[in-house]
Design a protein around this nucleic acid. Structure first.
Lengths: 154, 154
DNA sequence: CTGAATTAATCAGGGCACTGAGTATTTCAG
DNA sequence: CTGAAATACTCAGTGCCCTGATTAATTCAG
């Protein structure tokens, strides 16, 4: 006995939500390009020439994961990766023509999928949905570095 | 240009939410036992003697993933796995004494973590949060098998 | 200018999540 | 009773996600 009701556990709900999304993405958007891959491509369409670490920051992927995702996108010929002549540690990334085409195509399908995914909610509820999830995520993210002791701001 | 705003994409938000949860779990609950592992243990505390497939159903893990999670819990000595004498295909699972102890300990910590995680929301908002996520997940889950042609209900 | 941080990227290793294919066991039609 | 279908599980392969350690390049103090 003493077992817990997981339907009131946000972590469990988050996992289920992501699984549901994965399913829909696979059937409605693409079986080749994943959602994180699209996010990276999208960041590079917005800001071509970013380095790997910054792209990871933009889309919320750590250094190891972003390296893998970028390697896959590179293998598929969707982005170019060149060493920064100014700073030999960095690789500068930008989408290829094929990458731009793929991004445009998937952006349309993604919008359609989002509509289906959110269809059970009214417009007001969808706004609530975004707001609540964002607030919880941001707050937890903020707990990462519990206020730097040195040079707090400026 | 033509880049999309990911902050209005439920899939992206779901991923961020799960990452935030992962972070908090790791610091506040356990670095050894993961959240899916706890979910499996919890299911077996509620219903000892379940077979692998059913446990997977209860906690939302597919056949392959549940096999891995159970193998890890078995290696840690938190559950026992015996072949069903009635049906040689099944393995019957039940928590060990150590598994029960671990479950009790983690249940307490998990409750504390959930409070911290949901602290940015009022009680009413927390209820909304559960409701909205559950409705979206359930609806997408329902799209898996688009209405069985045989014996719809009963 | 040189040695000590700092920084970007990589590598090794563990865990979650899915699909498609294969194996063993049970069930069920004939 | 026997062969086909269904079922529980396993295995191989791909991809996401994290941490800690390592490598290469840059920056910065002395």
């Amino acid at each position: 006995m003493a077992a817990v009701d997981l339907t009131t556990h946000p972590g469990h709900l988050a996992r289920r939500l992501q699984q549901a999304h994965y399913l829909l993405w696979n059937t409605m958007v693409s079986e080749e390009i994943t959602s994180p891959q699209f996010a990276v491509l999208n960041a590079l369409v917005a800001e071509p020439g970013l380095d790997q670490r910054t792209v990871g920051e933009r889309v919320g992927l750590d250094r190891s994961t972003i390296a893998e995702v970028i390697s896959r996108l590179g293998r598929r010929g969707l982005l170019d990766k060149v060493r920064d002549p100014q700073d030999g540690r960095r690789s500068l990334l930008r989408p290829t023509d094929d990458g731009l085409r793929t991004h445009r195509k998937l952006a349309v399908r993604t919008a359609r999928m989002n509509q289906v995914f959110l269809a059970p909610l009214s417009a007001a509820e969808q706004a609530q949905f975004f707001d609540l999830i964002r607030r919880v995520s941001d707050a937890a993210e903020g707990l990462r570095n519990p206020a730097e002791p040195l040079v707090p701001q400026g």
